[in-house]
Design a binder for these strands. Structure first.
Lengths: 213, 213
DNA sequence: CCCTAGCTAGCCAAATTTGACTACTGACCG
DNA sequence: CGGTCAGTAGTCAAATTTGGCTAGCTAGGG
């Protein structure tokens, strides 16, 4: 799956109550339009879909304060909060090589308690190591490497990526264990949303850091 | 974009003429169902779409030799071959952090000449370096790092991934420059498709190496 | 005062992707 | 000889994603 649901749930949750454009603006503030599929269409679609599924509660609201069609405000439900934490835990653990998924989870990881975040990240490392083992055993058959020609570079690439991912995750674990950041239940949380009327310093038109072609 | 079009074009091209199930089987042989979105629906859709766009030529063929509905055979056109090389060059160069795209390109890179492959990979490294520079400048503002709290880990992760990607690409460049593999115009090419009736040694049910959750 | 540009807010059609499903054949089992 | 299991070949509806479009306001220039 993509990161969009976690991002949208997280944005709504941090606001308490938010309309589509607010979510869209937050995601842009986070740079999510650069590293994930957070485009307007996807965001509005996710909001509607999750409202239909009972993860969000939709309030019909009067015509917007400034132009455009009337807007709908969303609130996260009990079920939506559960889903939020389920996705967060899953994305922090799962090694599925889609960087957007981990990126979104990193942004929200402090909603968990420090101990749990550490556990999940360790599970992540174990997952990567297991995967790496499976791949190398699978792809280094009886007649030794080299038999595969340039196709061997594919495995080479995947193994290298896995190793880098594991190494980086171990570094993060060390930093968190060393006391970095403020996790759930440890005091003033870090706030990362824009209030109504606040200007977005990272609006579009700044250096792209999503794709470089 | 996803890797599916390059994969399908590449499979049809290596066969000369292929029906959907043959392509599907090749992609499975390459493990593509594990590391890309190469599912039956996507494959058949891509074939039809590309036929409609003139990249493939569709021949209506009698009921299949063994069960199932009548099948359609496809042949790559001039235009399709152009598209194939365009995509191949693009995916070898573009740093868009979707591993499936680079993976597919690695599988086909030997269809280029050695010198061109080297150039493209060097371009890739330059792209990664430029991107890395943009990100760090953008995200390390006046008041120094650390101001960002745990959000800084996102940049940290992206920069680390970029560095790993660049390092690996440099390694590949060295190996290719050192004479590894057989590129276009250098003799017997490496063949990686299944002939009609040949058994697929990597059929489904083997260790998954796409996602680990 | 009119016109345009730019922002606000969201919608929509088309393309793609997903995950399940159909239908037909041949082989093997008892 | 009937049942069912595996393999062949592909279709389909639903969900999602893409990329661009609409429409209401407001500020400012001429």
């Amino acid at each position: 799956m993509s990161a969009i649901r976690l991002l949208v749930l997280g944005a709504v949750r941090q606001h308490g109550r938010a309309h589509g454009y607010q979510v869209r603006n937050d995601l842009e503030y986070w740079g999510a339009h650069e590293w994930s599929n957070a485009k307007p269409g996807s965001i509005y679609h996710a909001l509607k879909q999750m409202a239909k599924q009972g993860l969000l509660l939709a309030h019909e609201i009067a015509p917007s304060t400034a132009g455009g069609p009337p807007r709908v405000e969303y609130e996260i439900t009990e079920k939506g909060t559960e889903e939020y934490f389920t996705l967060l835990r899953e994305y922090l653990t799962a090694y599925d090589q889609r960087p957007d998924v981990l990126t979104a989870a990193l942004g929200f990881m402090v909603d968990l308690e420090r101990a749990e975040a550490l556990e999940l990240l360790q599970e992540r490392v174990r997952g990567i190591e297991g995967w790496r083992k499976a791949v190398t055993e699978y792809y280094t058959p009886e007649d030794g490497p080299g038999r595969l020609g340039h196709i061997g570079e594919i495995m080479n690439f995947w193994v290298d990526s896995a190793d880098s991912g594991a190494r980086w995750t171990r570094g993060l674990i060390e930093r968190i264990r060393g006391g970095a950041y403020t996790f759930a239940g440890e005091g003033e949380p870090f706030v990362g949303v824009l209030e109504e009327g606040q200007e977005n310093p990272y609006a579009t038109g700044r250096p792209h850091w999503g794709d470089a072609h």
